[in-house]
Design a protein around this nucleic acid. Sequence first.
DNA 1: TCGTATAGGAGCAGT
DNA 2: ACTGCTCTTATACGA
Lengths: 220, 220
Amino acid sequence: MRVIVCRCSARYTGRIDAELEPGDRIILVKQDATVLIHGASGLMPKNWMPAGSEWIEEPGRIVVSYPRRGERLEIYLHEVFSDTHHAAELHGRLIKLGSEREMSDLLAGQLWRVEEGLEMVGREAQTPVGPIDILATDQAGDPVAIEVKRARVAGGEVAYQVQRYLDALAGMPDWAGTRPRGILVAPAAARTLLALLEQRGIGFVRISYELLASPATPPS
Amino acid sequence: MRVIVCRCSARYTGRIDAELEPGDRIILVKQDATVLIHGASGLMPKNWMPAGSEWIEEPGRIVVSYPRRGERLEIYLHEVFSDTHHAAELHGRLIKLGSEREMSDLLAGQLWRVEEGLEMVGREAQTPVGPIDILATDQAGDPVAIEVKRARVAGGEVAYQVQRYLDALAGMPDWAGTRPRGILVAPAAARTLLALLEQRGIGFVRISYELLASPATPPS
DNA sequence: TCGTATAGGAGCAGT
DNA sequence: ACTGCTCTTATACGA
């Protein structure tokens, strides 16, 4: 890992064309050849190049390229304040708790929170248009596609995503003659989305990861 | 801007819970108080905190918090290899060419490339469900919602995005009695998306930014 | 503030 | 490789 503190400018061409005007920046070059040019604000780098990029260095100029995708970044070093190298031998993992997948896992064992009488059919149930998070059957035997979101949902696309699953279910021989339903499970939803779901006949059940992770209290 | 090269571990709690095991990292602290913990690979930091975070430092331990969103990052410094500060006085802008907005601007003056006889109605035309990139009328006087994408489109969401616009148009008094149509303009589309568009009656016209930016050759 | 859409999105898992 | 889909997505723009 190399850290260059410098005043530089840059020019990127590839997926777009971009010009970075001169400024004080920190350039990180990682062990996998990822290159980041970080400015004084924000999470995202001003410019970057992906892992596996090729590196050509001349005095005052660095050219990083990724021919496979037609990308190229030219960095012009106007003044180098420091340029150091670090071994980075230890690489501890990052462990995340509370992902959607985990929420879905928890919910699978607590389907009674969604609706009484649901029977699990499958997880990530394959349809021609993509996998359904949780597929269940209700008391009437009709299929219920449950879409799980970890965080508050605002955008309306999810309604169409569920609709797409329902259309697919309706066309599958296994479910011929049934009336597929859809339910969105999330900790919160935008007002406009709730209206859209209502209009489409898609249910919404407010459930958070914290609720699912807390000691379960199944129905009596 | 501060750069700490160190061996550290960290614990984040907020939107999820995450634990970063001990490893060699580069911590960037930006002028806007953004904090990034970068590992040896990849574009994204292992952990981060947003601009405006609060900072508490003790020997061997840094606590960054953003109470407004209930976020907190604890960094445990096991060994500090270097810890430097840099002024960063010059902040040149980043200028991008080839964004979707610019592509849309160009296309607005070359609607003949999409379909003969289109008449411009509006840009970013407001509907209750969001703005339509380009709204036009065709030779029959029916509204045409044109969605512009600057890069190849794979996901099917765009079909629903356009469908939503069409539904909204159908419900607007201005367009009562008309038959709204949708057209996706992009340099390329996935096979499955093409099928979905076809099925939904949404048109696809293959146009790239490069084509629009090249010297225009209007119809004879 | 919320809602909506773009991003050089990135990253990941399945086919 | 292509597709689908989540992300502590970030970021910008507008009502």
